[in-house]
């Protein structure tokens, strides 16, 4: 039993760290869509923050 506890404690110490995980891939910018409407995700700049429906509360 004591070995089991020691094993578990080592597991916590060894595997409980998220350090060493690879960084997630970053974005790459893409050309904007000049034909897109002002609210379209790829619209060329000049849009504002706006409002998102269905917040996370």
């Amino acid at each position: 039993m004591n070995r089991l506890v020691l094993f578990c404690l080592f597991a916590v110490a060894g595997c409980g760290r998220e350090d060493g995980r690879p960084d997630p891939p970053v974005q790459h910018l893409v050309p904007c869509d000049r034909d897109a409407g002002p609210d379209a995700p790829l619209a060329c700049p000049s849009s504002d923050a706006g409002v998102r429906q269905d917040g996370g509360d």
Binding site: Q27, H28, L29, V30, P31, C32, L42, A43, C44, P45
Partner: peptide, 11 residues
């Protein structure tokens, strides 16, 4: 964003 490339936006 890249200020030298105003035609580029985030995907």
């Amino acid at each position: 964003l890249d200020p030298t490339r105003p035609d580029l936006v985030r995907p």
